[in-house]
Amino acid sequence: MTADRLQTYGPTAALLALAAVFAVLSPQFRTLGNLQNLLDAGAVLAVVTIGATYVLLLGCIDLSAAGVMGACALAVSLLVANSRTALDLGPLGVLLVVALGAAFGCLSGALSVGLKVPSFMTTLGVSAIGLGVATVLFAGVQPAVSDPWLLQWASGRWLGFTRVTYLAAAVVVLAWLVQRHTRLGRYATAIGGGEDILRLSGIQVGRYKVGAFTVAGACYGLAAAMVTAQLGSGIVQAGAGLSFAAITAAVVGGTQLAGGRGGIAHSMVGVLILTVLANGLVLIGVSPYVQRAVQGVIVVVAVGATLWPLRHRLEVVK
């Protein structure tokens, strides 16, 4: 029972401990401005991690964020008012890009379910396809976004927070509700718990798997729009490194790679841990060389500490 509780609250405790340490070591860390900056910095990772979490709940893994986000970032910058095309679709453009992301996600899921290829490989393949699409769209000239509506996502502030932060928060709440209260969310969790049992119950598992991948893709699409708003132009590398970061965040937060355990709330704690770590290490002036090492070690220690009381029960660890 205590072990269960530790698994649930351990990451949160780790987050609070980290924040406390940084708050003591760095006066700047304690400021409201830094809180705003923190949440702002974590917004994109949060949205990507939400997507990754849905796939992790299935027990699958999604490495496609880099490619999908690259393609979507280029697409969104070409669809809204920009320096290269005559299109000016505004919000519709963002919607279209979310749909594009969803289509990529759907492709990963469908390939994995249909061809029975491990998701590890299909998402890797789809990532490469996405990067290719992004490169084709890029065509040598970086499109600069001039749509004030999209640009305002990152610049305008409301009660001190940018719209990107609010957007991420809204997505978090929505994703949590979907996970908790919809058939898609519950079945995704159930698939991670016992896919064969769902099959025996006559549930079309494949459909829900593809659904979860599609949601993930849509999240990447939205995240790409957010990055584009922040950077002011569409770049191919919009999602570089985010796949691993998102999985790390989810796992650190207590969402398990084996599927079925954890969820949005856990993953978001993980996102905050990673964001606080990145922010805090800069603020207390740790050398850039060491930052990476410290992050790696802390991730292992965080997961290790969470699993420590369970070590007798976990007979099999992969």
């Binding site: 997961v303 290790g304 992969k318």
Partner: peptide, 8 residues
Amino acid sequence: FRIPSFVV
């Protein structure tokens, strides 16, 4: 420490 190999 029984940490998944992926994480380690």
